Amino acid sequence: MISAAATGSIAYGFGFRYAEALGNSNLQTLKTTHAEQAGTAEKENRLQLLQQVARANESESLLFAAYESFKEEKRQLQERIPHVTTQYIPAPGAVAKPIPRCVFTAGWLRDFNTALGVSAPRPGTTAAAAEKAAWPATGTDAELLESGVTPADILAHAQDYGLWARSNLVQLNALLDLQEKD
């Protein structure tokens, strides 16, 4: 019986070592496979990141180019404001004359600001008297007072507002373009 137990023990030892060697071999193969997959995934992710960075840089460049274009257009328009707001020609071939005085009432200015989404100063805030005067109550004589706003002021405001709106549009389109490319 001792011999059967010894034989069983030897067989068990060989089987254990064989299974252990096979398990170690399989584990090493699995580690190698995972390392290769991780390396491939890293390369793919790096390539995607570089592509996204290139697209973002291109979009940023286009955005800044648009901003510069808008600034130049605004500069040119600002140079023309005095010319187009101080004189006019009443008919083709006539001589230029000074533009008649144009009055914008405080009520008109209030409604203009309201149409643009500018809210009235809240009661109790530290608004300047001029700011309060620009928000007269509806139906009062104060809304018919002269606001002091000139056609040149309105044109300058339109330039600023147009620059703001166009800048927002360019940003939105750039974001949409980036999203489409992804």
Rank of each mutant, 00 (worst) to 15 (best):
L27W: 04
A129R: 08
Y88T: 06
A134V: 04
A128D: 09
E58W: 05
A66F: 07
Q87A: 11
Y18F: 15
K43S: 11
Q48H: 10
Y88C: 08
E73Q: 12
L109C: 00
I99T: 12
P121C: 02
T114I: 04
V103S: 05
Y67Q: 14
A5G: 07
E72I: 01
F64G: 07
L77F: 09
L50V: 01
I81M: 10
F70T: 08
E68R: 15
Q37I: 04
G23C: 08
A137K: 05
E79C: 10
Y18K: 15
G23R: 14
L77T: 08
P98W: 02
L77R: 10
A129P: 06
R55G: 05
H34N: 14
P82H: 09
W135P: 00
L27C: 06
E72W: 02
E44M: 07
Q51K: 12
S119H: 07
E72A: 08
G13V: 12
E68A: 15
S119P: 01
A106F: 06
T86E: 15
G107E: 00
T126D: 02
C102E: 14
L109T: 04
A11Y: 09
T138A: 10
A56S: 10
H34T: 10
Q78H: 15
E42K: 14
T138Y: 05
Q87K: 15
A137V: 00
G15A: 15
Y18A: 15
F104H: 05
A130S: 13
L116K: 03
A38R: 14
K31Q: 14
W135S: 00
H83T: 14
R110V: 01
T86I: 08
G8E: 06
V118M: 06
L77K: 11
T40Q: 13
R110M: 04
L22N: 08
G8Y: 06
A91P: 04
S9G: 15
R110W: 01
Y18M: 13
T140V: 03
Y67P: 05
Y88W: 14
Q52G: 04
S61W: 10
A65V: 04
A94F: 13
G23Q: 11
L49R: 12
N26P: 07
N26F: 03
R55W: 08
W135I: 02
P121G: 03
P98A: 10
A41D: 01
R122L: 11
G23P: 00
V118N: 03
G13A: 15
L116D: 05
L77Q: 11
A106R: 02
E131R: 04
F104T: 05
E58G: 07
A94M: 13
A133H: 06
A56K: 10
T114L: 00
A134Q: 01
L50Y: 08
I10L: 14
R46T: 07
I99M: 15
A11F: 10
T125S: 07
T140R: 04
V53W: 05
E20D: 13
W135G: 06
S25W: 09
L47Y: 13
E36G: 09
A127E: 01
N24R: 12
A56G: 08
L22M: 09
A35L: 13
Y67S: 13
C102H: 13
F104V: 03
S9I: 08
H34C: 10
Q76H: 10
L62D: 08
E79S: 15
S9K: 13
N26Q: 08
K74P: 02
